[in-house]
Each structure stands twice: as structure tokens, then as C-alpha cells.
């Protein structure tokens, strides 16, 4: 398959109301399923809200249970239709809690969890307090899908250049980024400075490695902290091809042509160069060992 129809759903969940938000998702699935769609991406903590503090222990779910809820919501509204869904959620794995995202393949009426990524970089500074409540993911894995090899990076995972770099080196051609980004910075141009920062990071990653970036941003205010939405699809040349506004629940959609990845990498073969040099870089004895 050369062209993948992508829909990114920018949710604005009611805080902590998982069941109600899941019910709303049925309407969203009904809407997205009315047009051709192969892959639906939702934000970090898409159905609970992001800032949960201790309530994360009440709302975290086993990944299979969460995947089953997503699959049921899709199949009830789109019986017989195939789709892949990515969604961020708080995961309870036998009493250890993670900020996770699931990649779910729904095919032939059955759901298959292709991968669960556990957020590796848990922001715990300033307004953020993730590591007080959650454990770090320990693995960055790429995984095969019917649309090619992918990786999921959650929010701050993307702010460390080495993470998307390693994902690309390991073969990912599409990077999926569920995110929840509280906005700040009112002294600059026509948008919050944190949105500008995100755009720059995502476009730079896509251009450097020749990958598609599918960014799903959470929306809505949570206790005064406004999530900046701004969901976007960035092509492998580093161009944002569609972008949602910061505020409010939105859907953005676009067909993405996977052949563009090869074209971009042929034009700017930085990833190939990196493959050749990376072992030398990592063997550098000056790298800190702490």
C-alpha cells in the first residue's frame, strides 16, 4: 500500500470521565469511518485528560482492556471495516503504572495489539510531575505494520533528538507522536512560543530522517493549563501538510504517500550517512559513562 489515509483526532476530554469520553469517541469513529481511513491517531491521555495526579491509579487500565474498549468503539460504529488506531492512555501493568500508547490493528472484525510504547522521558519539572506517579518505559522499539515500520514516541520522547534518531535508524518510516503539551509563552508572534517550538522540532526530525510524523495533540484547559492541540502531519521533506488549531476538539486528515519517504531520502541522504557513522559516534570514549 503506497497511500495511507490518516486521520488525527485532537481530543478535548472531560477530566477523568473515561466512560463518557469513550462514548464520545464512538461518535468520532462514526464520523471518521464515513470517509476512507486507514490509520487513526489520538493524543496522549486522550480519554482521561493529562494532569491526573494520584487519580492516575484510579483510571489506568491494562493495555488489553484498553485496546478492547477501543476496538469495541470502532466495530460498533464501523462493523466490518478495517482500521489501525493509535491512542495514548495511562497503563496499569500489574501495579506498575506507565504513560503509554497502544497501536491497535483492527482487521476482519478482530483487534490485534501490535505494540505498546511506554513513555521513556517523563517530564518532572515545573508544571510537570509525571515521575511522581509513573514509571519510565525502558524500551524504544520499532514495529511492523501493514503500512510499514513505525515507532511511537510520546511527547517529551520527541524532545531528545536521539530518540527519533534511533527510531529512524532502527527502520521506522512513520513516527507517531501522541502528546499533551500545556501552552506557554505569550510574548512572541501570533501563537504561543511552545507551539512554535514543537513545530520546529517535528519538522526538523522529519526532514533530517526522511520520515512522516503524525502528531496528535491533546486540547482543552486542565486547571488553567491550556493544552495546545496543534495536531499535524509532517511529510518526509519536513513540511507540515496539515495542522489543527490549538484550541478545541478537531479532526485533521490527509492521504500520505509512502513513496515520498524514498524520494526525500534520495534527495537528502542524511539517514544513510548516519547508518555509516553511528557506530563510531557511539564508540566514542569521550561519551560520559555516568
Amino acid at each position: 500500500m503506497d497511500v495511507v489515509n490518516v486521520a488525527i483526532v485532537q481530543t478535548k476530554p472531560r477530566k477523568g470521565k473515561y466512560r463518557e469520553n469513550l462514548r464520545d469517541l464512538r461518535d468520532v469513529f462514526s464520523q471518521t469511518g464515513a470517509d476512507p481511513v486507514d490509520l487513526i491517531v489520538l493524543p496522549e491521555a486522550a480519554l482521561t485528560g493529562y494532569f491526573l495526579e494520584g487519580a492516575v491509579y484510579e483510571l489506568a487500565l491494562d493495555s488489553d482492556r484498553f485496546a478492547a474498549d477501543l476496538a469495541a468503539a470502532w466495530l460498533e460504529t464501523n462493523p466490518g471495516k478495517d482500521v489501525d488506531v493509535v491512542c495514548g492512555f495511562y497503563e496499569n501493568c500489574e501495579g506498575t503504572y506507565y504513560n503509554s500508547a497502544v497501536y491497535l490493528e483492527i482487521s476482519g472484525g478482530k483487534a490485534n495489539v501490535k505494540h505498546v510504547h511506554r513513555k521513556m522521558f517523563l517530564p518532572t519539572y515545573g508544571v510537570f510531575d509525571e515521575e511522581r506517579f509513573l514509571s519510565r518505559g525502558r524500551h524504544l522499539e520499532t514495529f511492523e505494520t501493514r503500512f510499514g515500520r513505525m515507532a511511537m514516541l510520546i511527547c517529551e520522547d520527541c524532545w531528545h533528538a536521539i530518540v527519533p534518531t534511533l527510531a529512524a535508524v532502527k527502520g521506522a518510516r512513520i513516527l507517531i507522536v501522541p502528546s499533551a503539551a500545556p501552552g506557554r509563552g505569550i510574548d512572541d508572534g501570533g501563537e504561543l512560543t511552545s507551539i512554535t517550538r514543537w513545530r520546529g522540532i517535528l519538522e526538523a526530525i522529519a526532514a533530517e530522517h526522511g520520515v512522516y510524523l503524525l502528531y496528535a495533540g491533546l486540547a482543552g484547559f486542565e486547571g488553567g493549563k491550556g493544552m495546545t492541540g496543534s495536531s499535524r502531519i509532517v511529510d518526509p521533506h519536513g513540511r507540515t501538510i496539515v495542522e489543527a488549531p490549538a484550541l478545541g476538539a478537531q479532526i485533521i486528515r490527509a492521504p500520505i504517500d509512502l513513496r515520498e519517504i524514498d524520494l526525500a531520502r534520495a534527495t537528502l541522504p542524511l539517514l544513510g550517512d548516519l547508518h555509516a557513522v553511528l557506530p563510531d559516534l557511539l564508540a566514542d570514549e569521550e561519551l560520559p559513562r555516568r
Partner: peptide, 24 residues
């Protein structure tokens, strides 16, 4: 003193008020 983009700020704060009062 710190700068401000007043148009952007007003838009953000209107959304804040609607979310915190009506939605929340």
C-alpha cells in the same frame, strides 16, 4: 518589563474562561 501579544493572550484567556466555567 515582559512583552505581551495582547491579541493572542485575549484569545487564549477567552478560551480559558469558557473551558473553566462552562465546560468544567
Amino acid at each position: 518589563a515582559p512583552a505581551i501579544n495582547p491579541e493572542l493572550t485575549a484569545q487564549w484567556l477567552e478560551a480559558f474562561l469558557r473551558d473553566e466555567l462552562i465546560a468544567g
